[in-house]
Simulated assay, not measured.
Amino acid sequence: MQYNLAAWQGKKPAYCRPGFENKDFPLQEQDLNILLRAEEYQHPDSRPRLLARPEAEQRPTHSLTDLEHYRLQKDLNQTHKPGLRRNSTGEPRLCAATCWQWPHAMLHAALQRKQPFRLSHGDEWELALLPDEDNASGLSLLRLEQDKQRDPIDWLKSDHLLHLIADSTLLCGKGIRPWGSSDYLSELEQLASTLDMPLEDCARRYGRLRLRADKNSDEGWLFHPVLGFGRKR
């Protein structure tokens, strides 16, 4: 294969998603016979990714490997300032170097929200998984009402959104069993005892989680202590 689909269709940039080419870091070639040396693909391993060529030998506009090292160096150290575009403020961009350039950059997870590992869609709900002796499952799901992030915290009972997966559904094959501790209530009780906290207070503090929710659906989530939560469809 001499070109990827985007290059074959004449798109520019072509080697992105995946790839490190963009408008600020363009490639002058699209032919993979030029962009890759034979030793970089005939025996696939991590060496091209880990071992950069000497700077004098690098050709980031004519090599996928050199482009990756060049762009990572620029982005991680924030030495590259892209040209100003419409509605741009000209302020420095957030990048990996921001974590150590700004002492409190990680304090409120602003960087993670600005540059998430995976793009997610929909609303995000804050929930808490509490013990409930009156419930057959022994658990109760509470949801923090939107726009009420400050005291007094107002929780809305949302047990109809919690759908437990029975062990018999998952652990039905020979030799299939979870390893490690998977009993949420037992772990919660042990933590509450260690911290000398009431069980419910401990759950409200350490049993909190955030899940993506579809506001147009009331299906809720499937839950198993081993696998965690998954959206019910």
Rank of each mutant, 00 (worst) to 15 (best):
A192T: 01
L161D: 08
D24F: 03
D31E: 06
L129N: 09
F25S: 04
R93I: 10
E124H: 14
K215N: 11
D147H: 08
R231E: 07
V226M: 12
P116K: 03
N135C: 08
N33E: 01
P82I: 00
R177L: 07
R143I: 13
N22W: 03
D123V: 07
W102C: 14
S88M: 11
M197C: 07
Q115A: 08
N87K: 13
E39L: 08
I176V: 15
Q190R: 03
T79P: 11
W155L: 12
W8K: 00
A109L: 10
L164F: 12
S63P: 04
K215F: 10
S217N: 02
L162I: 01
G173D: 14
I165Y: 09
K174F: 15
C95S: 12
E68P: 11
Q146D: 14
R71C: 05
Q30I: 02
G138K: 00
I34H: 02
C99K: 12
E39D: 10
A52D: 01
N87Y: 14
R17S: 05
A105I: 09
A56G: 06
Y70L: 01
S217T: 11
R113W: 04
Q149M: 12
L50D: 00
L76P: 10
S46T: 11
C172I: 10
S140P: 00
E124M: 09
L67P: 01
E124V: 11
L222W: 07
A7N: 02
G19V: 01
E126W: 05
L162K: 02
T65C: 03
P48V: 05
L139V: 08
H121G: 15
P152I: 06
A213P: 15
P44V: 09
N77F: 03
H69W: 01
R17N: 12
E55M: 03
N4I: 05
V226W: 10
Q28M: 14
G83A: 13
R143P: 15
E29T: 00
N4Q: 00
H121E: 13
Q146L: 15
S88H: 09
G175T: 03
D45K: 02
P44F: 06
I176W: 14
L188Y: 06
L5G: 05
Y184M: 09
H69A: 04
T194K: 09
L127P: 07
S88R: 13
